[in-house]
């Protein structure tokens, strides 16, 4: 559709001290595309996700979101670390959903959703509340706007977290194992919301262990191991006909 990818990673490396977590990840995500990342724990999936919105700083390689270099400014052939203000500005357009929801416990569901649009984007409160109510309705929680997170089930909390991220009108949504902390019967309600989001054309990168969801929703699937992309392609192909031994071994355990 367009020649500019939403996310473009070129040999992205990340290390924590001597520990190399990402050893050169290269991939592209086109607008309106859903990418599912799978792989064993410790393979660097979450770290890669966190690099995309600069929660972690990339050590080598280049990472672009919507054509803009993440975390650095390139001036005169040199990379300069970003001012915190500029980094915060980059993050505004990228929504993130965490494994443990990380809702603000001292705020009601509605307050969680309206906080950032009002404080960060300085939008008018009435208008934000109106769109927040629509978002809560969209994730099926219209009746829970006055409820505090501790009084919601895990699945409900995660749906509020999705609404909170959507309230910033992101052009890209990152999901870091969004259903891993949920009871099995609550996983479905969160996946339903994500499925609808993908159907509405949101660009999404999803780190997940839900192979069924990946097969059904993802346009592209990436299998990561040891900080590298081992295999990638359309999910049906990767899942049904893995080429690499490592992928086969992993899939035989989770499928």
């Amino acid at each position: 559709m367009t020649d500019k990818p939403m996310v473009s990673a070129q040999a992205v490396c990340k290390n924590f001290g001597a520990l190399e977590v990402l050893k050169g990840v290269t991939l592209e995500v086109q607008p309106r595309e859903v990418l599912c990342m799978v792989g064993p724990s410790g393979s660097g999936k979450s770290t890669f996700l966190r690099c995309i919105n600069h929660l972690e700083q990339v050590n080598a390689g280049r990472l672009y979101v919507d054509g803009v270099l993440v975390g650095y400014a390139e001036r005169g052939g040199k990379l300069h670390e970003l001012q915190p203000r500029e980094a915060a500005k980059q993050r505004r357009d990228i929504g993130m959903v965490f494994q443990h929801f990380n809702l603000f416990p001292h705020m009601t569901a509605l307050e969680n959703v309206i906080e950032a649009p009002i404080r960060v984007k300085k939008r008018h409160k009435d208008e934000v509340v109106e769109s927040a109510r629509k978002l809560l309705d969209r994730v099926g929680l219209a009746d829970k706007e006055k409820t505090y997170p501790a009084q919601l089930s895990g699945g409900q909390q995660q749906r509020v977290a999705i609404a909170r991220a959507l309230a910033m009108d992101p052009k890209l949504m990152l999901f870091d194992e969004p259903t891993s902390a949920l009871d099995p019967e609550l996983v479905g309600e969160v996946l339903d919301v994500m499925r609808q989001l993908a159907f509405d054309g949101m660009t999404m990168i999803v780190v997940t262990h839900e192979m069924g969801f990946a097969r059904e929703v993802a346009d592209q699937m990436v299998f990561m191991d040891g900080g590298l992309v081992v295999e990638s392609g359309p999910p049906r192909e990767v899942l049904a006909n893995p080429q690499r031994e490592r992928t086969k071994a992993f899939l035989s355990k989770v499928l």
Binding site: N53, P84, R85, A88, N102, F104, E115, A116, V120, A165
Partner: peptide
């Protein structure tokens, strides 16, 4: 206050001082 709170606020584009004022200190 758990680290996830600061992370969630940062991911929403909130500055460090805003995160302190609105998210961390009230908790």
């Amino acid at each position: 206050v758990p680290e996830g709170q600061t992370e969630a606020a940062t991911a929403l584009g909130m500055s460090w001082s805003l995160t302190m004022r609105r998210i961390v200190l009230p908790q």
